[in-house]
């Protein structure tokens, strides 16, 4: 990368590609900037035509409404619970399953692995109706349990961790193994500490998918007390379509956790997302 021979010979005041990149990057950034700006506008500023493009000051009316009169705090907590459980459980069950597939010999392991891989190709709409029926049989419809159970572990977590464990040198484990450690201790004291990149990938992608999901909560939940943020925001907008500053304040609250997590751990996010495409 730092090879100076790759420098371009011709020197312009600036690289002409900026003429394409700068406006495009601006176009990508503007909607999110506008989201932030409009959430602190007064209703008067938003509801005149043409609407103001810059807030006159910081009006927190929208936030006050959303946090006081609406159920956003509740929805936020629901989303947090579901995502947190999903992340922890995917890490745990994915590690156990992935390790068994990577290192242990047991009857039927080949078939099971192939079957699990195949399920990754099943489109959601083929499973959504019966999954709803299964959840109803379990008495979980309209509870957070209906969201948690299907997201306890994904084939992606198992498979990604299996691939990673296979890439670790076996000798490390064998030494401990000969010292008489149990499988579980070898796994959690030797393998897991070495697997931080793969584990963080699983954590990031699990958080992103569960936090952002709309379709399954829409099917599985009925009462607004059980909603997640995504579903709550969607219905809130339907009921308060004239209070745009409140809707946008709610939208900020919905987006902010993911956005902050992304900005704080951008490298991990990008590596995780590219790993879905390249290494899978």
């Amino acid at each position: 990368m730092t090879d100076p021979s790759r420098r371009r010979g011709v020197r312009l005041p600036f690289n002409p590609w900026h003429l394409l990149l700068a406006p495009l990057a601006l176009l990508f950034a503007v909607p999110l900037i506008w989201l932030g700006l409009s959430s602190v506008m007064s209703d008067a500023e938003i509801n005149r035509f043409p609407p103001a493009l810059w807030p006159s000051g910081i009006h927190l009316g929208g936030y006050r409404f959303v946090l006081g009169n609406a159920m956003f705090p509740r929805w936020f907590a629901n989303s947090l619970i579901v995502s947190a459980v999903a992340v922890v459980s995917n890490l745990l069950l994915g590690t156990l399953g992935g390790y068994a597939f990577a290192r242990m010999r047991f009857g039927g392991s080949r078939v099971l692995l192939v079957l699990m891989l195949a399920t990754m190709a099943i489109p959601f709409q083929l499973t959504m109706i019966p999954t709803f029926l299964v959840m109803r049989k379990l008495g979980l419809v309209d509870t957070l349990g209906a969201l948690i159970v299907p997201s306890l572990v994904t084939p992606f977590a198992v498979f990604l961790l299996r691939q990673f464990f296979l890439s670790l040198p076996r000798e490390l484990e064998e030494a401990a193994w000969i010292d008489g450690c149990s499988r579980l201790r070898v796994l959690f004291q030797i393998v897991v500490p070495l697997s931080r990149p793969a584990l963080s990938t699983v954590a990031v992608l699990t958080f992103l998918t569960t936090w952002n999901d709309l379709s399954w909560p829409l099917i599985a939940l009925n009462h607004d007390a059980n909603y997640t943020l995504q579903l709550g925001l969607t219905t809130f907008r339907g009921q308060h379509h004239t209070q745009w500053s409140a809707v946008m304040a709610g939208n900020v609250i919905t987006v902010l956790p993911v956005l902050l997590a992304f900005l704080a751990a951008q490298k991990t996010f990008v590596r995780s997302i590219t790993s879905t495409g390249l290494k899978g």
Partner: peptide, 21 residues
């Protein structure tokens, strides 16, 4: 031991994909 390790994943993944399909 291996079966104990994979059982939760097998139940959730196959139970909520193969069965529904």
């Amino acid at each position: 031991t291996a079966w104990v390790f994979v059982l939760p994943s097998v139940l959730v993944i196959l139970g909520l994909s193969v069965v529904p399909v």
